[in-house]
Design a protein around this nucleic acid. Structure first.
Lengths: 117, 117
DNA sequence: TTGACGTATTCCCATATAGGTATATGATCG
DNA sequence: CGATCATATACCTATATGGGAATACGTCAA
């Protein structure tokens, strides 16, 4: 087997920097393809291809408006990524380290108190 | 050009589900390779390869202990992912929607008050 | 209808896998 | 030293890109 398809899930879709840029651009609101082409400085077909991948994982929605196709962010598709990486926040967040200290204290007090139950 | 290397950054490294599983397994603490082999049910060479990728993006550290190599999680490498995806939390979090409401209220009050500066 | 505009799709190519299998490397034991 | 355990690496293969160029498709204007 080769690498998993970029359309397999949000993790793969978002591994490509250009696609993250597209999502960042769409964070400001709905945009037609050519807007993105200008903003990212990519060729139009490339943008369309990236948009397709993002569509397939549900990270963007499309709406037809005359000859244009307006793309809109659908951040919900990114929630699994957030959920996963959030559990590692402890590794770099000072706040969580302090929380760990507090929990450690509580634990020791409990042991100092009565035993089981 | 083909797809970016998995060792290019944490986003690419973590796009592979097995590698996320490895990190999840290491969240419990330092482990030798064979532990991971058993836990994930993968062939040993595959695990070593995934670990190499994770090492190259800094998501794990290694330590030699006799014939074993103990791998340890280094969640700091995942911070960029968290930082990026966090900005989209608004899309699904009820808390953020409520925050938006509050900010909207403040805005309207400001406009009701004196004008510029 | 003809033409222009905005997008999507098709082809082609170079590249980087991820898995399987075999093997090399290192350390420890007898 | 020779054998064994724990890992890493080398090879090979099928596959899925991502970019470039050309082109098809749908809509609107004259």
């Amino acid at each position: 087997m080769a690498r998993a398809a970029t359309t397999a899930d949000a993790f793969n879709a978002v591994a490509e920097p250009r696609r993250r840029e597209i999502l960042d651009a769409l964070a400001g609101g709905e945009r037609p393809v050519n807007d993105l082409v200008r903003l990212l400085g990519l060729a139009q077909p490339q943008v369309s291809k990236h948009l397709r991948v993002l569509r397939e994982v549900g990270a963007v929605d499309v709406r037809d408006e005359g000859r244009q196709r307006l793309y809109r962010l659908n951040g919900h598709a990114l929630k699994p990524i957030h959920d996963w990486v959030k559990t590692y926040e402890r590794s770099w967040s000072e706040r969580f380290e302090q929380l760990d200290d507090v929990l450690e204290d509580l634990k020791q007090k409990e042991q100092g108190d009565a035993g089981d139950e």
